[in-house]
């Protein structure tokens, strides 16, 4: 589904990713772990198409398409969706409007008609209940005045509604208390199926107790230095990252 090959990315002239390769298949949940500054957030930002990241070499393909040639909105419409670490506040744009406009944009890209209003409301109601959010959130401006946990729930709400093929979650656990973590994890887990893949970036193993990954990668200094299963996450939790570095240097 997603193929990243020997990706080199610089930000403001500084090389952040230094030959990263990654392959994600449908049905898989991947976790990328690593110390601060390793380039974890850069990977998902580059895939989503955020400005300010220069790909100097390497490639990203999604279902055979060259991702780097696609506009930001095309990537989203193709099924790659990024859940932000710091969701931005959008004053004046109601949450419900964002949801509807985004859903209809994605439907239009697939050649489908706009969703009828009753069907849309039914769908939104189901998803917002699942995320244990009050329906008043729909009327509020996107993320404006939301707490950290509410913002993260709102990101997952968008995922549930838009049903991406590849859900990328950037530090979705940061700033969450345990209850919010469970709700967010339930939301993400509900997305798991044989045709969908999830790529999580996280600093802590804690999230992986709730969303159990199939594959765990360790990203250090712009490269994936070790790949394993969920046991690797536990090992990192207890031993830190130093041993991985030493091992890869050896």
């Amino acid at each position: 589904m997603l193929e990243v090959k020997d990706l080199h990315v610089t930000v403001e002239g500084k090389e952040i990713l230094k030959g990263l390769s990654l392959s994600v298949n449908p049905g898989e949940v991947h976790a990328i772990m690593g110390p601060n500054g390793a380039g974890k957030s850069t990977l998902s930002a580059v895939i989503a198409g955020k400005d300010g990241y220069e790909v100097t070499s390497g490639s990203i393909t999604f279902e055979g398409r060259d991702v780097l040639e696609m506009e930001i909105e095309e990537r989203a419409c193709a099924g790659m969706l990024l859940g932000f670490q710091y969701p931005v506040e959008i004053p004046g744009v109601k949450n419900i409007y964002l949801l509807k406009a985004a859903l209809n944009a994605q439907r239009a890209a697939r050649g489908e008609d706009e969703i009828p209003a009753p069907e849309f409301m039914k769908l939104v109601r189901e998803k917002i209940n699942f995320m244990k959010m009050d329906s008043s959130f729909l009327q509020r401006a996107v993320n404006e005045g939301f707490s950290g946990g509410e913002k993260k729930r709102n990101e997952i709400l968008q995922m549930l509604l838009l049903q991406p093929k590849l859900a990328m979650l950037d530090e979705i656990d940061s700033g969450l208390d345990i209850d919010a973590m469970k709700v967010v994890a339930d939301g993400v887990n509900s997305l798991r199926d044989a045709n969908r893949a999830i790529l999580m970036v996280t600093h802590y193993q804690r999230l992986l107790d709730h969303i159990v990954p199939d594959v765990v990668h360790v990203l250090v200094d712009g490269r994936i230095v070790k790949t394993g299963d969920k046991a690797l996450a536990h090992e990192l939790e207890s031993r830190g990252y130093e041993w991985v570095l030493e091992e890869s240097a050896a």
């Binding site: 989503a48 198409g49 955020k50 400005d51 506009e71 930001i72 909105e73 990537r75 989203a76 419409c77 969706l81 990024l82 932000f84 969701p87 931005v88 506040e89 959008i90 744009v93 964002l98 406009a101 985004a102 944009a105 994605q106 890209a109 996107v142 968008q158 838009l162």
Partner: peptide, 17 residues
């Protein structure tokens, strides 16, 4: 706010919209 524009586009909404 260019960040907000990116956030909207990252959900599939066109740049112009």
């Amino acid at each position: 706010d260019e960040e907000a524009i990116f956030a909207l586009r990252a959900r599939g909404i066109s740049d112009e919209t």
